[in-house]
């Protein structure tokens, strides 16, 4: 196994990652107030209050903190935890949407993140136009998309609706198109944030099959779901988050 660093370096590695939201942002009206709030923050930091590792201070909120784990290649890890425990925040940091406040991380390989299905869709454009647009959002060229479009439409089972504005889609159809598009790319790392629950039962089964095939092809998967059964079916290990911190030791 250890002959190649490709196999030994983990696909994802987080070291002490934290994300701090500043509350009361709406109170900052003017430059003057901004400077005052910066100064008080600095003062607090100097007095060491920032060192207290509470999740919430007067105007700060740590959505996640001290998150360290690594995901070996080809492993499917489930992230669990109550609402607001920081699962989506963690995934956003890994997918590169959210720049962390502290810590560092490495992500190796191409990433496809399903944080929200059809996030880039425009209601006034047709399904087909949105596929081209959505594919370019993940950096695909027009020619590459043209090769995939039939497969995407077939998987979403939307052949009859594909030239209709997505404004007229049901929310399930919308999500199906989003899922078909996002998983048709061939990522090394797939990030899935509880998006499988939207479609109807047959479509959910298809999604599960597709995820299985990702696993078979030794792709790395990070999976968030509130469905314990799904977690148990898919994931090799789980990481539980609680109040923005890891609750279980890194396996």
């Amino acid at each position: 196994m250890a002959t190649s660093s490709l196999l030994t370096t983990p696909a994802v590695e987080l070291k002490g990652v934290g994300v701090r939201y500043q509350l009361n942002l709406e109170k900052v009206f003017s430059l003057k107030e901004l400077l005052v709030s910066k100064a008080t923050r600095l003062g607090r930091q100097l007095r060491g209050r920032e060192q207290q590792k509470t999740r919430r201070t007067a105007d700060d909120f740590w959505a996640i903190r001290d998150i360290s784990f690594s995901v070996p290649r080809g492993v499917c890890i489930g992230l669990t935890g109550r609402n607001g425990s920081g699962k989506s925040t963690t995934l956003k940091v890994i997918s590169g949407v959210l720049h962390p406040t502290e810590g560092e991380l490495w992500v190796r390989g191409r990433v496809s993140a399903l944080i929200e299905l059809g996030a880039g869709f425009n209601p006034d454009l047709t399904g087909r136009e949105n596929i081209y647009f959505g594919a370019s959002v993940s950096g695909l060229s027009r020619a590459e998309t043209a090769k995939r479009i039939d497969r995407i439409v077939d998987f979403a089972e939307l052949r009859d609706f594909i030239d209709m504005p997505v404004r007229n889609y049901s929310s399930g159809m919308y999500a199906r198109l989003g899922f078909a598009l996002a998983t048709d790319v061939d990522p090394d790392l797939l990030i899935v944030d509880e998006v499988l629950s939207v479609g109807d039962a047959p479509f959910q089964q298809k999604c599960k099959d597709r995820m299985e095939s990702f696993k078979k092809r030794n792709k790395t998967i990070l999976f968030v779901s509130h469905d314990p059964q799904a977690i148990q079916d898919f994931c090799d290990t789980t990481i539980e988050l609680k109040d923005g911190r890891i609750n279980s030791p890194n396996p």
């Binding site: 940091v93 502290e102 810590g103 560092e104 490495w106 992500v107 190796r108 191409r110």
Partner: peptide, 17 residues
């Protein structure tokens, strides 16, 4: 760096600072 010798796979390193 050692990571890029493995393959032409993209490596993203993000630091908070």
């Amino acid at each position: 760096n050692p990571e890029s010798t493995a393959a032409a796979e993209p490596v993203v390193h993000i630091r908070a600072d």
